[in-house]
Design a binder for these strands. Structure first.
Lengths: 239, 239
DNA sequence: TGAATTTGTAACGGCGTGTAACAGATTCCA
DNA sequence: TGGAATCTGTTACACGCCGTTACAAATTCA
């Protein structure tokens, strides 16, 4: 399962989540599931999701509301599941910003086909996101300019980062003071999941530490959490 | 698929998008699709579109509005799809600036013929457009005069650019602080898609860097994003 | 304490990128 | 129209990034 799309299934029906999840995994997707809005947001925070399959009918916040909220600050493709195939639902779903909709009950194969189609289209118009325009982040005296991909030390010296180091640092900055597993870090930086005995994250952490830690032997900024992952300790301020 | 016209299909009906898209691709076009206005704008931002096939009836913003907006600041040829062949639609469509209209249901062959006709006409009158008259863009102290194709360094010295270098710089200036793939850059500058092992973009970037980067060994303006493409880092101001 | 597990990192090699050099294509000019 | 000058893509090779492997060090557990 390398470099495969990461699908988030949001449905209150456990059976649908499990069956659909297994089906998609068998067909080359990584899958995370959530039963309602709160869990959905948690999953979006924990992983780099490529596409959301969102049930229209949910307890608590319903799918339409979630969909509108998602659209407000992200461009993640959404496929809506609607209980009835009514025209009104379709219109409303598309109006609210869904990329496609599938009426229940659905054929998993058809859903998979639509997922692929939506992902293909999304890939074409991929980097429509403003890519952190002009934003900068400060931590422990350091300044990272997201737009210019430029890092400055507390003393004012420019430190050049390779693409991989930059991506890793961005992942840390976007999730500070949280333990991030190697799997999550790989997902954030490379959009793929870890293979067994995959040490690539360790290596990149080691290389990044050499550039930003005053003493790489006693790291302060990026701490190791044994059998957990890594933790970015400084507070991050963005502007 | 080289140097072929890049068609953008805007229609909320997935089936029409897919079928028509495949048909056009089979007949020597490159195709990108969008379900509604938001996706259409994203696609226009990401690619150099030669012609838009635009459905009159769309959820959210309807085709007429989109068409009028498009005409306000671009000359991209537009073919409207109208649900009924009513005279009024035709009149309104043409009034709003569409180059042709095709009533639904339509024969793909006929649509293709009209696309070719409109493209031929557009190609003839292409050089007639004043090409951003008198506009200039500033970035990192440099000034680029779009009309005169003239570049001035921060010190005030004139730097002559070849046509290819100029087109590349314009592509960067029109999409600053975004990672642009080699494929996108080829589309912007030459209107074609990349062949496997195509290094032409790399070469042009290398040549442009030599002219505008203070230190070509440590580029600041045009950064490389490994396995992603290139990124124009400075903020761009236009006047 | 010793074994098992986990992490740090040196070393190597595959692969993506930078660029020199050449050749084909295009433009310019008489 | 023909030849020169210029521009642009291809080829070839060097370099640097990054993942794998291997082994040492640190930590945990019995």
């Amino acid at each position: 399962m390398d470099n495969s799309p990461h699908i988030l299934i949001v449905d209150d029906d456990r059976e649908i989540r499990d069956l659909l999840g297994r089906f998609l995994e068998k067909h080359g997707c990584r899958v995370t599931t959530a039963a309602e809005g709160r869990a959905m947001r948690a999953a979006l925070d924990d992983w780099s999701i490529d596409l959301i399959v969102l049930d229209l009918m949910l307890p608590g916040e319903d799918g339409l509301t979630l969909c509108r909220d998602l659209r407000a600050n992200s461009a993640i493709p959404i496929i809506m599941l609607t209980a009835m195939g009514e025209e009104t639902d379709r219109i409303v779903g598309l109006e609210v910003g869904a990329d496609d909709y599938v009426p229940k009950p659905f054929n998993p194969r058809e859903l998979l086909a639509r997922i692929k189609a939506v992902l293909r289209r999304a890939g074409e118009s991929a980097d429509a996101r403003p890519a952190a325009n002009g934003e900068t982040a400060q931590f422990a005296g350091w300044t990272l300019d997201l737009g210019r991909r430029h890092l400055q030390s507390p003393e004012g010296a420019a430190v050049t980062l390779t693409a991989g180091e930059f991506e890793l640092l961005v992942a840390f900055i976007e999730h500070p003071q949280r333990v991030l597993s190697r799997d999550q870090l790989l997902d954030f930086t490379r959009g793929r999941s870890a293979a067994p005995f995959d040490r690539s994250v360790d290596i990149q952490v080691s290389r990044l530490r050499r550039k930003i830690e005053p003493d790489a032997a006693a790291p302060e900024l990026i701490k190791t959490v044994r059998s957990g992952g890594y933790l970015f300790t400084p507070a991050v301020e963005r502007s």
